[in-house]
Computed example of a mutant assay.
Amino acid sequence: MTVVAMLQGAEAPDRAVTLDALALAQRLNVPVRGVCALPDPNAAMIVMSTPEATGLAASATRDLAALQDKIVAGAKDIFDDVTSTGAHGLACTFTHEVNIAERAGANAATLADAVVFPHSSQKSTDPLGPSFEHVLMEARLPLVLSGTRPIESGPVVIAWDGSNGAARAIRFHLDLVKAFGAVVIAQSSKDLEKDDHRASADPTVLEDWLSAHGISAQRMPIEGEVASGLLSLAKQCDASMIVAGAYGHSRIGERLFGGTTRNLLEASDAPALALAR
């Protein structure tokens, strides 16, 4: 198994996501793989009807290939720089995958222990934005979104309301939760009152399930709006990560997140988020 860092050839996001991938891999004692996925530039070739137009298309394809080479080289340099001093014996590999980023991200999320996206990918305008959206909203696979601060050694906060999304998030990321050890179950009683009663929302249900997997947890209530309450609790606990279900849907490339998910994603001061829809 492995932890995958999704890279884009930009200094700040690539460095942050590689550091977070390393932090998780060290906890799990598994290899780290950096992935920079770009489509085949030849696939962008447009069939033209005249020799002149065909020549222009070929020139554009060469320019695109040169740009991609520069992006890949930049991503590799950053990945190698971070892992050369921070891997502490873990196997680290860099892969340039000739593929669209959406498919590469989904491939990684299918079997990796964790696939980590940079914090900026929650923006639709980010180069990895479409991949982030596809993995989470369309493929419905788990991912970790880097926070605005590095992953530390604090507890994992689980946002628990008994829903399918919350259950999928904790089941998918069970190994990560185990690796951090300390767990806080966070719940807003007022938020639960908005929906029909779910027996699974009782935190005792989650406590028993975690206990069966060798994990002890403490409960801590949150007040007010759920996202702000989770973020405040995470800061209070120096949490390493929030595990939560993602709510909303995607429609022809337009992501439509629910209010809590959107506020967690867009927070300017947040730990890493382990998400599943």
Rank of each mutant, 00 (worst) to 15 (best):
A87F: 05
R149C: 00
S188K: 03
Q236M: 10
S146D: 07
S121D: 03
Q236I: 01
W209L: 08
C36P: 06
V184M: 07
E11W: 13
G162E: 00
V116C: 11
D80S: 14
V157M: 08
A246D: 01
P155D: 01
S59G: 10
K194P: 06
V243W: 02
I71Q: 15
K70M: 04
H249C: 00
D80L: 11
A274Q: 05
W160S: 02
D161L: 02
I170C: 09
Q122W: 03
P130K: 04
A10Q: 14
H119I: 00
S232W: 04
T83P: 09
K123A: 00
R149K: 12
C92L: 09
H249Y: 13
P142Q: 04
T2Q: 15
D113P: 05
A53W: 08
G258M: 07
A182Q: 14
F172G: 10
V243M: 02
D81P: 03
R255S: 12
L264C: 05
S232P: 00
H96A: 09
H119V: 07
L206E: 07
G154A: 06
L19M: 13
P39V: 08
V4N: 11
A65Y: 07
C92D: 06
A10T: 12
R168Q: 09
M48W: 08
T61L: 06
A167W: 07
S228W: 02
G129S: 01
A272K: 03
L273P: 04
K76A: 14
A276T: 11
A270K: 15
V35C: 07
A234C: 05
T85K: 13
K190W: 02
F180D: 01
L143C: 10
A21P: 10
S153M: 10
A239F: 04
D63S: 14
R27D: 01
H173L: 01
I151A: 06
T85H: 12
G147S: 03
E152A: 14
G105P: 03
P118F: 02
L143I: 15
G258H: 01
G154F: 11
M1T: 12
G245L: 04
Q26E: 09
I78P: 07
G248F: 06
K194I: 00
P155F: 09
A73T: 13
S146A: 15
G9M: 10
G245K: 12
V32C: 08
A58N: 12
R149H: 13
R262F: 02
E207F: 12
R198L: 06
T50C: 02
T110V: 09
R262K: 11
G9R: 10
N29F: 04
E97I: 13
H119Y: 06
T148M: 03
S59Q: 13
E254V: 14
P203F: 06
S84V: 08
A10N: 11
N99K: 15
G229V: 03
L111I: 12
F94S: 05
A112E: 02
I71R: 15
A139R: 09
L141R: 15
V116H: 01
R15D: 07
T18R: 08
P13N: 07
A101T: 08
I170S: 09
V3P: 04
V157D: 00
M137H: 10
T261R: 00
A21S: 14
V17L: 03
H173M: 07
D238K: 15
T85A: 08
E266Q: 10
H88F: 12
E52W: 14
Q218H: 15
I158T: 04
